[in-house]
């Protein structure tokens, strides 16, 4: 108590004595500040370098297209209405195939998370399907589901199915058991517990699994459009590749990237809405 009185006394802090010096600050750092302009600047500088290099001739026209030509190609695509002609089938394939794969994946994942029999029976199966390069199955799907939209939906659906299953049953496993006991203690029905406790509790894991699944779906979109697609971003890229038309090839790649960024942004928005309850 005596000490406390001392420190609260009216004496000014001692700063004049030779022995006193300020403690050197040694924290800080290791915390990268985000700067959105840096990212954009890197893009602009790279694109400008490529453009100048191609115009000056120190980059061969065989190796890269002019960014300005890619831009012009994109503009033409937009103006001629070909963008929607290619984008619409691709988006509908992504939507239908992705929705089928994700819904089936969530359903099976929840079943694996809840029922011992499903877990014992299906986990090895999912583990067996997961590492198969789905692209290798495309010819098989063509035989099973036809060369039309069926085989494309199936490929994208299978590609999104397995990561969704794995993410979902992991998320269900991680749902707080005390919440489930609480539901039981209040006499909630089994279905209510699944719907109101298990599913929302697993949602963060399911959504981050969906993020991965969507990226895989976009990769598989190009593969799906290898066989029998006359329109679609993937078909457009493959056609440009076979024509060795670098302008179109890059235009297609830019569209795919934009699609990826847009979907990722939409997922972020969805997460923000659905997971608002998290900090």
């Amino acid at each position: 108590m005596a000490d406390a009185t001392d420190s609260h006394g009216s004496k000014p802090p001692r700063t004049d004595a030779a022995a006193s010096r300020e403690i050197r600050f040694r924290g800080g750092g290791f915390r990268p500040q985000s700067n959105r302009w840096a990212g954009i600047a890197v893009f602009i500088v790279l694109i400008a370098l490529v453009e100048i290099g191609l115009r000056q001739g120190w980059i061969s026209a065989l190796t890269l297209p002019r960014p300005s030509a890619v831009g012009a190609t994109l503009w033409q695509l937009w103006e001629s209405g070909n963008l929607t002609r290619h984008l619409f089938p691709s988006l509908s394939r992504l939507a239908v195939g992705g929705a089928m794969g994700a819904l089936a994946g969530i359903a099976i994942g929840v079943a694996i998370g809840l029922f011992g029999l499903a877990r014992a029976g299906l986990v090895p199966l999912v583990a067996a399907i997961f590492p198969i390069p789905k692209i290798a199955l495309l010819p098989l799907f063509v035989i099973w589901f036809g060369i039309g939209e069926g085989s494309k939906y199936a490929l994208i659906a299978l590609g999104t199915f397995t990561p969704t299953v794995v993410a979902t049953f992991g998320a269900v496993d991680n749902v707080d058991r005390t919440l489930i006991r609480m539901g039981q203690s209040f006499g909630l029905t089994w279905w209510s517990i699944v719907r109101k406790i298990v599913l929302p509790g697993a949602m963060p894991g399911i959504l981050s699994g969906l993020r991965v699944s969507l990226a895989i779906a976009i990769i598989l979109l190009v593969a799906a459009e290898m066989l029998g697609a006359q329109a679609g971003i993937g078909a457009y890229i493959l056609e440009a590749g076979s024509l060795y038309d670098l302008d179109r090839l890059f235009a297609g790649v830019v569209i795919l990237s934009a699609l990826g960024v847009t979907l990722s942004w939409a997922m972020g928005l969805l997460e923000k809405r659905v997971l608002r309850w998290r900090a």
């Binding site: 539901g183 203690s185 209040f186 209510s192 109101k196 929302p200 509790g201 309850w277 998290r278």
Partner: peptide, 27 residues
């Protein structure tokens, strides 16, 4: 008739205060 109050509260973090109360009435 037999209703628990748990040590760690066992509230659903995705439901509001009213929603957590509503949960046990909805069935």
């Amino acid at each position: 008739p037999l209703t628990f109050v748990f040590q760690d509260f066992a509230l659903l973090p995705w439901r509001s205060v009213a929603g957590n109360v509503s949960l046990v009435l909805e069935d």
